[in-house]
């Protein structure tokens, strides 16, 4: 294994992110080749967490763009600060400045509201981590626009000119696969898939993130979660839910998973009535294992 890959793994572990060789390799390649990293996987397996931990590990800024349907350039890239522009014009009403001068004044950087993409490009100190979260929730038009920005990391603002990135940001995109992303975007990115963790890995995560939990209990929690994911549920709980549950158990000073504790905390990882019914029906079988 390359020393750099091992180093990334170590750095992430310092941020309490349990990184396997696969994710460390993906991050290394993404940084070394300067390509965005597209991370896919079911909800709650820690896709967003990777970008956050990476930013902390590199001691750099995390700039996050949360995608949703209808997201457009004015929310993702930049917008003019209209109230400020209006006020400025009012204040300058009596000034002898020409129309062109006034125009130049209000369409300058001081009146620009930088949205995440422009922030990432104009970050001066060092390359930030740009997290484009849940790209599958944006629409196709936005994807095409994003492709343009990601290909050369420069943006043209008609009134100001072309802004080029001084430091190319480390770009991480996440997707829950709720819609097919375009081939063009997929090709532009390196691809990484995160699945639900194995029992051992989940145990490791629980112990790292919830250090106060008793050893035996953490193992039991991980076992129940693994068994739960094998059931036919409408919403399968992710690692985020496991951690919520473990934290709740610690807060309640629980030492074991009896029926009472289970009933009190089941809402931490199952959020659907029929799922809870399915789980309860299968519970005796899990307990027998």
């Amino acid at each position: 294994m390359r020393e750099e890959v091992r180093q990334i793994q170590r750095l992430l572990e310092e941020q309490i992110y349990i990184a396997d060789a696969a994710i460390a390799t993906a991050l290394y390649l993404s940084m070394a080749l300067g390509k965005p990293l597209l991370i896919e996987g079911p909800a709650g397996v820690g896709k967003t967490e990777i970008a956050k931990s990476l930013a902390k590990a590199l001691d750099t800024k995390l700039i996050r763009l949360q995608c949703y349907e209808g997201l457009d350039a004015t929310t993702a890239l930049y917008e003019w600060n209209y109230p400020k522009q209006l006020l400025h014009l009012k204040l300058e009403e009596t000034s002898p400045a020409s129309e062109a001068e006034k125009e130049a004044a209000i369409f300058s950087e001081a009146f620009l509201l930088k949205r995440p993409l422009l922030q990432a490009i104009t970050e001066h100190e060092r390359a930030p981590v740009l997290l484009i979260d849940e790209i599958d929730r944006s629409d196709e038009e936005f994807e095409a626009f994003l492709l343009e920005v990601l290909s050369d990391f420069q943006v043209t603002i008609p009134e100001i000119g072309t802004v080029t990135a001084t430091h190319k940001p480390h770009v991480v995109l996440t997707s829950n696969r709720s819609r097919d992303l375009s081939d063009a975007l997929r090709r532009r990115c390196l691809y990484h898939w995160i699945d639900y963790p194995s029992l051992e890995k989940e145990l490791e995560i629980v112990r790292a993130k919830v250090p106060l939990i008793a050893d035996a209990l953490s193992r039991r929690v991980a076992q129940v979660m693994q068994a739960t994911r094998a059931m036919s549920l409408s919403k399968i709980p992710g690692v985020a839910e496991t951690l919520d549950w473990a934290n709740a158990l610690v807060a309640l000073n629980a030492n074991e998973l009896n029926d009472e504790i289970m009933a009190e905390t089941i809402g931490c990882f199952l959020k659907d009535e029929t799922d809870i019914a399915t789980f309860k029906a299968e519970l005796p079988r899990i307990n027998a294992d």
Binding site: M1, R2, A21, T25, Y28, Y191, H192
Partner: peptide, 18 residues
């Protein structure tokens, strides 16, 4: 060129990423 080509896992993971 930038990975350890003797490490099967590393080559596998890298090429799969790409």
């Amino acid at each position: 060129q930038i990975i350890d080509t003797k490490d099967r896992d590393e080559v596998f993971l890298s090429l799969r990423n790409i």
